[in-house]
Design a protein around this nucleic acid. Sequence first.
DNA 1: AATGAATGAGCGTTCATTCAT
DNA 2: AATGAATGAACGCTCATTCAT
Lengths: 224, 224, 224, 224
Amino acid sequence: MTTKKASNASLPSERRARLVRLAGELFAEKGFRATTVREIADAAGILSGSLYHHFDSKESIGDEILSGFLDEVLTGYREAAAGTDDPRTTIEQFVRSSAATLARHRAALTMLQNDWSHFRAMPRFDYLRTATREIEHLWVDQLERGKQSGLFRPDLDARLTYRLLRDVLWIPTRWGQSSSNGWDTDQIADAVLRLIFDGIVARDSRPAGTSPADRQGRARPARS
Amino acid sequence: MTTKKASNASLPSERRARLVRLAGELFAEKGFRATTVREIADAAGILSGSLYHHFDSKESIGDEILSGFLDEVLTGYREAAAGTDDPRTTIEQFVRSSAATLARHRAALTMLQNDWSHFRAMPRFDYLRTATREIEHLWVDQLERGKQSGLFRPDLDARLTYRLLRDVLWIPTRWGQSSSNGWDTDQIADAVLRLIFDGIVARDSRPAGTSPADRQGRARPARS
Amino acid sequence: MTTKKASNASLPSERRARLVRLAGELFAEKGFRATTVREIADAAGILSGSLYHHFDSKESIGDEILSGFLDEVLTGYREAAAGTDDPRTTIEQFVRSSAATLARHRAALTMLQNDWSHFRAMPRFDYLRTATREIEHLWVDQLERGKQSGLFRPDLDARLTYRLLRDVLWIPTRWGQSSSNGWDTDQIADAVLRLIFDGIVARDSRPAGTSPADRQGRARPARS
Amino acid sequence: MTTKKASNASLPSERRARLVRLAGELFAEKGFRATTVREIADAAGILSGSLYHHFDSKESIGDEILSGFLDEVLTGYREAAAGTDDPRTTIEQFVRSSAATLARHRAALTMLQNDWSHFRAMPRFDYLRTATREIEHLWVDQLERGKQSGLFRPDLDARLTYRLLRDVLWIPTRWGQSSSNGWDTDQIADAVLRLIFDGIVARDSRPAGTSPADRQGRARPARS
DNA sequence: AATGAATGAGCGTTCATTCAT
DNA sequence: AATGAATGAACGCTCATTCAT
């Protein structure tokens, strides 16, 4: 992954960083393919040809965004996995780490979902598969250990569950489109955690405070 | 939804139906915008211009796919809501109905997720918003009733939960990309139901057999 | 010109005549190139491919219309020229004959004006030049004779005047587009004759009744 | 006319102006619809796509040509109408002004005649109707005043006459197709004026010098 | 006589990219 | 760093025409 980018990457000249950010916002909204370089240039107030002083192609902007995202996700996950032996704690850390990273990398997520078939066909983006495979392994490992320790239901299909959880995590990030939807990052992480740990069914015997999502009700009591 | 079919849609001459199916497969894989009419024609073994004997535009193929999907989803939901007073049963029906419909309409799902910004801008597709609003209302209604009856956790944010559940349901459908991923429609519905009702945490006090997801372990005991 | 048309012309089977008429109406409105065979077929209530049972090409419909028109015009002019020695009478006959013919052949006129560059390039339509040359010769001949006899102004440029008169004659035909414009064939012929013979300036010394256009004022006294 | 220029029209960078001129020549020859953007590009020695660096559509080239023409015509007519109270002088100015303008805007004329049905259907070109209505009003007004003052024949149908005159004026412009037809702008204006004022009939009682067309027969030495 | 399906060339347009200035 | 002009391939679509049924 750690793709060390082209010659002109050496000077992360603020201008360049701004362009990546601008492009990212557009990619997040409409996807990579559906965003034209002209739209990016328009957003930056320059002509489309001028973009090529900063990047050698539209693809390399995508590359930068995707590799930056995956680097950060993996770093967060590795730390979470190394920090404790308790699967539940680790998974909770996965979720919180993801929620934070995703909020800053909405573009990468949209690209992964919308344009996967596009990137997958290109050798340049082989690292996408490498990285997603490592991520899957980290999750599945925790789920299996949770099953063995009796924490998780023994009938859980670890890979199926991982896929479900990963995508569940991604969901709220996509909602950012309609910016003012009323939920912030923490609320969403809580709701997701509560959902995946305990489901939506009420349960009187649930030990109070064990679930981090208990905060949900307090944080925004007026909602419901 | 008021499915607005193109004039020549009245006679679904098998050839035409085949073209819609073929187009749908491509849309499901790469999205609507990213699929070219030449690709669709190639898949059918004809020239791109020949498509226009059957459809008046690429858009109208998309229209047909999307409206067909939403019609079916809504029909299923309305029946589920009318069939019983028990929110849990209704929601379970929502899930099973969705799983079945989605399996037959993967293209619509991809289009809704990948190309939403494209369709939203077009008056022709106004029904997308109408329909999704009704769907949301049906779900939120059941969730609220479940909360009031004590079935669901009182701290549940019904709209947030609906959004989460809807997208959770959509998740496995998207996996179809790598066709042989080993889970069938029932297994997925079960896993999803179990997840959203009970979460992933083991619980000894859980009454055996109440959850339909109990079948998961039996159906594919060799997996893990 | 008298182009004897293709094999299937042998049976002027009313169906065929109807198609030519229908096509003519469309050509008259929008020109030849701008009218599609599909539009013609639609007007006839059949599919576009079915037209080719009656004509071997769109061009041959145009051919039929144009040659029919020119045949009729030339016949009328030859008769007018042969009927009298008086240039003024002959020219008046040219005008009256043209007005009648043009009213029945609006399509040909539009095609000659709109699509001339299209037909001129095709050997098949060489007769257009032959015919227009003969027509020009007939007019110029009368104008020259009128000059010599002192009837017309001696400073008249016969060819320039012919061109002007020919096109003046064509003008009202083109107005047919907005069908109900309130002037009928006779009125128009009268107005044109009055214009070209006497101009628009009032003249007290003008012998009453010499101009055929005297009828104009009587026919529609309420207009002015 | 409220000329609605495209965004990039603000800088008429010589290249752009050259393209409009080139396109105009083609439109004048074959009409707007019948001219392809590839032909325009070929004439300019560039690729068809490159045109879109300068214009956002073929239509907007047409818009520019048409609105430019109508602006100029109206300006000339308004000046002519404001300059004198004598209808004959005004109409003579109309004719001379038109002849000059038309010579520089042959494309517009061809488009108005060949592609009227095309433009009329488009809201963007609503100004065509507004402008032609004003032009008609300006002419009819002069004709009516000429009738009342006894200058023009009392039986003249002003609207019918206007239509005739307008189209008569347009006629010679269309001949430009075969560029070397031997008459220049002034000759044509004179011939037209002489025709519309006095007709083609010789008349001894005609007051010498009243008609500007008197110059036609002579060598035209005094052309100022 | 007509249909229904298709062809193949060409249309107006878009887009990532290049490059002299 | 950026512009302005251009490229070349591809796009969605149209159209006259063909042909088996």
